[in-house]
Write a protein that binds this DNA or RNA. Structure first.
Lengths: 338, 338
DNA sequence: AACGTTTCCGAAAACGTTTCCGAAAAAATA
DNA sequence: TATTTTTTCGGAAACGTTTTCGGAAACGTT
């Protein structure tokens, strides 16, 4: 339990603590032999410098904080793997917390991180977060923050995002190319920026191909399986079946799928489906779901690299928004039978 | 960026730092009015005590560390939610790291946590971990550690486990009750304690019902979808189809399911399937998969409470192994048609 | 008025580092 | 040899807290 400290090593070697410190920090003003001797005996004594003391003195911790809204879905864990990969190599530790989609929790987490003197923060905003004043202040004070996925355009800092517009456009166009005419979109709360962008992509793909959309074509469903089920069931009850549905995410699409199956409707024969933000589920459900894959781990790596750059540049940096590419994985659920 | 410290508050109020400290730590030897005044102005100045300095002095950090093998599968994230729930309330912070199923990473992580003066550790051993000497020492020195899920019986400390034997027995018995006679088991590496226990359950259920097992009945597949696919395809090629398969986990079962479908075989008509360690996937695949659910979040909560107890008891505790209950969720994949 | 108690607060040490400053010893230069 | 420069190291301050110790003031008791 008792840790061996720098003083113990100094006493053992009959020298001052500053010399030990010099040996460990590879300073120029120490003789090679002294350094080697110190390092050897320190190793033998199982001494390692106490990072807490170092943090206190240096006013930074070699830790970076990550706050995500949840990690039940595989998306955020995969991003975190990318983040850790980068920081692990650089000798940073990664502190992870989840806000559980609550603004209050998010603030608590961020403040805890701050108190812990993390050197920077990687953040994905919760569902509830509207008020970003606190982050604005942090950024203004020069605190390094990188946002990803759930960002706010009020915040002027590095961001890693996905081109939701473009890929929603492609996904919709894919359905159009397959020959579907009557396509609808299950979206989620309009307050989320990504849902606005996906809607825009959906609409513009229609415009490009001179297909018209009526007001019933965009339905606010939600992100959960139950949301997809509910809205699908409504449509079935109303006998207003579309040819195809572009869903805001895989969960929603899978909900729709379950309901279609329940009523004996064929996919894609009666209704074709496309998801978004692909998860493992996409290729496991039957029929396999066409979906847009995001480069999750890559997102993490990119965010980490941007944060590192920001930390090392000591305030002098130009906020940058990196948009990563995705991929439309076409599977059975959307391919029209000949 | 510049943090306001206890000294700033003291200067502002023309009193000593010790008085400020007393106010914040609710000491008895301070006048109520002084305390209130201090707390008020501190709040106004946005002062909050620096936890790093506190850690250095107190030789503990109010942080606890969690090291898990992975968090791609939803299992560990769900456990972590339970852990965080408990510690958040107690004012602890939870540091999470993942070993990526590597022994070396695991050691690195644990040492980083230790250096960071975490007050305790919740640990699930990696696949590779055989040598637990380091942990033995830590425990011997009185360092609080709770193991869960992937435990080692060489380590004498609190553990939270699942009764793999019992639930493997029940799962197998369920298949027997359904009338399947020729049942096989897809298992994984025998080095993992849980796989041994599940095998034992599988065998004993057969013994109880006086069904015999031949040596080909237990097949070392693995934990991944690809493992299930591979072994299933082998069986199909050899025309050695069983009535039913009890799989070591859902992923493996889903792999088998995919292969069966590919060859046009009916589930459960031709081959029935049962999984284990239920994930969301179980009810989403078609047909829905019968599986044994573990109380993931409950596991986390329990581990957290045990660790808290151990931390607070300052060394005086009796290592305890808590076995949590599960639940067999019967779904289409195993129910024999009449 | 003299004494003992209690209440409240300040000074200083401690936690384990790093770094600045200065000094001694060694080496280089005159 | 005398002086300057370089090399190598020790002392001490600093980071922001908590806590022990002691002391001053206020109060109560004879």
């Amino acid at each position: 339990m008792k840790h061996v400290t720098i003083k113990d090593v100094a006493k053992k070697l009959n020298c001052s603590v500053s010399t030990i410190s010099r040996a460990f920090n590879d300073k120029y003003d120490i003789r090679k032999e002294t350094r080697d001797l110190i390092l050897a005996t320190a190793k033998e004594m199982e001494y390692s410098p106490n990072p807490i003391a170092k943090s206190l003195l240096k006013q930074c911790s070699n830790q970076i904080g990550v706050v995500v809204p949840e990690f039940i879905n595989p998306f955020f864990p995969e991003v975190i793997i990318g983040i850790q990969e980068v920081f692990f190599k650089k000798g940073y530790q990664v502190l992870i917390m989840q806000s559980n989609e609550s603004f209050d929790n998010e603030m608590e987490n961020v403040k805890a991180m701050e108190n812990n003197m993390v050197d920077g923060l990687i953040l994905s905003l919760s569902f509830e977060t509207q008020n970003v004043e606190y982050y604005e202040n942090l950024i203004k004070q020069g605190f390094p923050i990188v946002l990803f996925n759930r960002v706010s355009n009020k915040l002027n800092t590095h961001k890693v995002v996905f081109d939701d517009y473009k890929w929603a456009f492609f996904a919709t166009e894919h359905l159009i190319y397959q020959g579907y005419k009557n396509i609808i979109h299950f979206t989620t709360s309009h307050s989320l920026s990504f849902s606005q962008n996906r809607i825009k992509g959906f609409i513009n793909a229609h415009k490009k191909h001179k297909l018209k959309i009526d007001e019933g074509s965009i339905i606010e469903a939600g992100l959960l399986i139950s949301d997809g089920e509910r809205e699908m069931e409504k449509l079935i009850a109303l006998h207003k079946l579309p040819d195809a549905i572009f869903c805001v995410n895989d969960m929603c699409a899978i909900g729709a799928m379950k309901m279609l199956k329940k009523y004996g409707l064929k996919i894609p024969g009666d209704v074709a489906l496309v998801g978004f933000t692909e998860t493992k589920l996409a290729e496991l459900v039957d029929p396999a779901l066409t979906s847009v894959a995001q480069p999750t781990t890559e997102i993490g790596r990119t965010a980490a690299l941007l944060l590192l750059e920001q930390i090392e540049s000591k305030g002098l940096f130009v906020p940058q928004t990196v948009t990563l590419n995705g991929r439309l994985n076409v599977r059975e659920s959307s391919v029209k039978a000949k």
